[in-house]
Design a protein around this nucleic acid. Structure first.
Length: 193
DNA sequence: CTCTCGATTACCT
DNA sequence: GGTAATCGAGAGC
């Protein structure tokens, strides 16, 4: 499998467009000499200043500053004791991002199982934002990492496949909860919930 | 410094 | 489907 990372221009667009097109792409993590790969099957768009549910809604803080910078960087935060991975989108100065909610494990599954401590069945290994971060060894030390750099330990690579995209309400939020900004690959077995 | 609140998970019935 | 555990960021004092 040849791994060509997505370029900056991919992220330099409207957040919902980036979200939909991230479906089917490959999350690639270099870790301890191994390469872990997961196919993105579920994402959510967070629109920044127009979206009360977005962390960036109230403006820039130390935590959210990467969202206001160049697109194509990792926005990682902790919630309920777990880490979540987002990708920054939109032009510099505008704070859109895409939450990676679920991936299908493709390569490095033994390493993922080692990093996760519970529920090691393949279907439940990476089917949630906190779970996939644990399985991929993603924590705050990777905050702000450039996903478009060949050298990065974390990047997103191109992959082509035919599938149908389904949209639905975002999960686990209370504000702007009815907007259809969650996108999934229809009928994929590794979607969360 | 203290307090509150989740973009969650795992385990229970 | 219901809920306890969890912990850092952000806000307020």
């Amino acid at each position: 499998m040849k791994l060509i990372h997505l370029k900056r221009a991919f992220y330099h667009r409207e957040t919902t467009a980036v979200a939909k097109e991230l479906l089917g792409k490959l999350l690639v993590r270099k870790l301890e000499g191994k390469t872990l790969i997961g196919k993105i099957v579920e994402v959510e768009a967070y629109l920044g200043s127009n979206d009360p549910a977005a962390h960036a809604f109230k403006g820039m803080t130390k935590r959210t500053e990467v969202l206001f910078g160049d697109p194509g960087h990792a926005y990682i935060y902790t919630i309920h004791g777990h880490h979540c991975l987002n990708v920054s989108a939109e032009k510099t100065g505008t704070a859109g991002c895409v939450l990676i909610r679920s991936v299908e494990p493709l390569q490095g599954i033994e390493v993922m199982k080692k990093l996760r401590e519970k529920d090691l069945s393949l279907l439940h290994l990476t089917n949630g934002p906190g779970k996939l971060c644990k399985a991929f060894g993603i924590d705050l030390s990777l905050y702000g990492i450039d996903l478009t750099s060949e050298k990065s330990e974390l990047r997103i690579c191109d992959h082509n496949e035919d599938f149908e995209i389904e949209s639905s309400k975002r999960i686990g939020i209370t504000k702007a909860a009815t907007l259809p900004l969650r996108f999934t690959i229809k009928n994929n077995a590794y979607i969360s919930r």
